[in-house]
Design a binder for these strands. Structure first.
Lengths: 156, 156
DNA sequence: ATGCAATCTCAAGTGAGGTTTAGATCAATA
DNA sequence: TATTGATCTAAACCTCACTTGAGATTGCAT
């Protein structure tokens, strides 16, 4: 039983290593919620420390704040997530990690083929016939291509 | 020996899958250079297809355009890079890929430990200290995220 | 010679993920 | 009680990596 069951924004910041401004930003984006003191200051539940921690971890795995918000929406807001909550969510993260590793391994394989021949075609040694075939894809926001690490940039 | 030894910006765009505007942007940032036609239109060398391909690959590996510019600055600008050039640079990329894979595997291991214990507690969870800043795509001050990822309580 | 797509420049806009600033108010200590 | 640090809101600003728009010019094909 803690003396204070809610914490101020500064303490949440200190406990998570996140700037106060970022916490307000996360709240504005709907990733966390706050109560208010009589004077209008934010008060957070202790469970929010873990929610913010989750945001940081998920960010490191490449999820956007929007994607993180979707995951967090499935967590209980009013209590500390329990083992079942965490298992569900961390299993989803694991799939994400696996996918990234696979993509990187594929890229590495393709690159290895290139290191020998000096081409960057990422195809089987197209050093002298780079000019074949026209291109496939038009423009588009690069961030949309994020999950396709191995497919990009094949010179055709 | 080719009929056209230089190509227009549209062809470079088509051959790399990058938008014309992005190519102009890369040139403005000094990642690639162009000749000009008598009328002032950009003309690129065929080698620039590979330079642009390199930009895309390096981006996938989490390098910023500024970092990529540094690598590209070590490539010959006025001739097609030879096998030795590409071997040096692609070997550097390979090291980068290896590092990212290792980091992700470490993260996965920590996550696996967490999927049974249900912890999301800062001090105990190794995930909290994982540094994989390059995992993100898209814009934003990623370097700040990375710099802060391991620190605790940077509050002003 | 004409038409039209491609290209040009320069400026401004976009979106993610925040930070900074300004001026005002709150809340815990001396 | 007075003060001082923490917090408040709103809006502006920031970087990165581009895209979009406007208005003018170029260059290839009929």
């Amino acid at each position: 039983m803690h003396r204070t069951d809610v914490i101020a924004i500064g303490e949440l910041a200190a406990r998570t290593g996140v700037a106060v401004s970022a916490i307000r930003f996360y709240e504005a984006k709907g990733l966390i919620a706050s109560l208010r003191s009589s004077g209008g200051q934010r008060r957070f539940l202790r469970a929010d420390i873990r929610r913010v921690s989750f945001i940081l971890i998920a960010q490191q795995l490449g999820l956007s704040l929007e994607e993180i918000a979707l995951e967090l929406a499935r967590l209980p807001a009013q209590r500390t997530p329990n083992a079942a909550d965490w298992t569900r969510i961390s299993t989803a993260l694991r799939a994400r990690i696996d996918a990234r590793i696979s993509a990187l391994e594929r890229t590495r394989e393709l690159l290895d083929q290139c290191i020998g021949c000096g081409c960057l075609s990422l195809k089987k040694c197209g050093l002298y016939n780079v000019q074949d075939k026209a291109a496939q894809r038009g423009a588009g926001p690069r961030y949309l291509l994020g999950d396709r690490a191995g497919e990009i940039a094949e010179v055709r």
